Computed example of a mutant assay.
Amino acid sequence: MNTSKLKQQLPDTRACHGRNSPPDTGDDAKEAIARVTAVDRGQYVITNAQGEVPAKLTGRNLYISESPVDLPCVGDWVRVSYHDAGAHASILEVLPRTSFLRRKRPGSGIGFQMIAANIDVAFIVQSCHFDFNVRRLERYLVMTSEGHIEPIVLLTKIDLIRPEALEQLISTIRGAGIGARVIPISNVSGSGIDQLRALIESGKTYCLLGSSGVGKTTLVNRLTGHASRATNAVSHSGEGRHTTTRRQLVALEGGGFLVDMPGMRELGVLGVSEGIDDSFADLQARSLNCHFSNCTHASEPGCAIRDAIARNEVDAAQFQSYLKLKKESEYLEMTHHEKRQKDRNFGKLVRSVMKSKRRQDE
Rank of each mutant, 00 (worst) to 15 (best):
Y331M: 13
I276K: 01
T25V: 13
I200T: 08
I33T: 06
R102F: 13
S352N: 14
R162G: 09
T205L: 05
S108W: 07
E330H: 09
G275L: 02
N133L: 01
T217D: 02
I170C: 07
I91G: 02
L169R: 14
Q318L: 09
K56L: 13
E239C: 11
D76W: 08
T205F: 04
D277P: 05
H88T: 15
E52W: 02
Q126I: 09
L199C: 12
L160M: 11
S211A: 10
G192K: 07
E146C: 05
A15G: 12
L325K: 03
G268W: 00
T25D: 12
Y63P: 02
I193S: 03
H88W: 09
K216V: 10
L267S: 00
D131F: 01
S279H: 05
S299Q: 14
S65D: 04
S228T: 12
Q341R: 15
E167P: 12
A316R: 09
V39M: 03
K342A: 13
F280G: 06
K30F: 07
L267M: 06
L267G: 05
G268F: 01
M261F: 01
R60T: 10
Q341K: 15
F100Q: 11
V234G: 11
W77F: 15
A29S: 15
I185C: 07
I161W: 08
E333C: 08
I305Q: 02
D120T: 07
T218S: 15
E333G: 12
L154Y: 02
T244G: 06
M354P: 01
K327N: 12
S21M: 11
A165E: 15
N312E: 10
V250L: 08
V36W: 07
G107S: 09
I183F: 05
V214Y: 03
H236F: 03
Q284E: 15
T243D: 13
Q9S: 12
D70G: 06
A180Q: 09
R197D: 08
F319M: 04
D307S: 15
M264D: 00
G111A: 03
E300K: 07
A15V: 11
L208A: 04
E330D: 13
F123A: 03
V74N: 01
D260M: 10
H337I: 11
G109N: 14
E362P: 00
S67T: 15
Q126W: 06
H297R: 00
M264T: 04
Q360F: 11
D27R: 14
H242Q: 12
S293W: 10
L137R: 05
G18C: 01
P301D: 09
T243S: 14
R181W: 11
I276H: 03
Q248A: 09
C16Y: 14
D28K: 12
I124W: 04
I193A: 03
G256C: 04
M1F: 12
K327I: 08
F346M: 13
G192V: 08
P301M: 06
A251N: 08
T144H: 05
H148P: 07
V188G: 05
A316Y: 09
E31L: 13
A55W: 00
H336L: 11
T335H: 13
V234E: 11
G263F: 02
V272I: 10
P96Q: 02
G59Q: 05
A85F: 13
G271T: 05
I193D: 00
T98G: 15
D120Q: 06
L71W: 04
G147P: 00
P68M: 08
V74R: 00
T47W: 10
G302E: 07
L160G: 04
R102A: 15
N345L: 14
G190C: 02
G86M: 04
S329I: 04
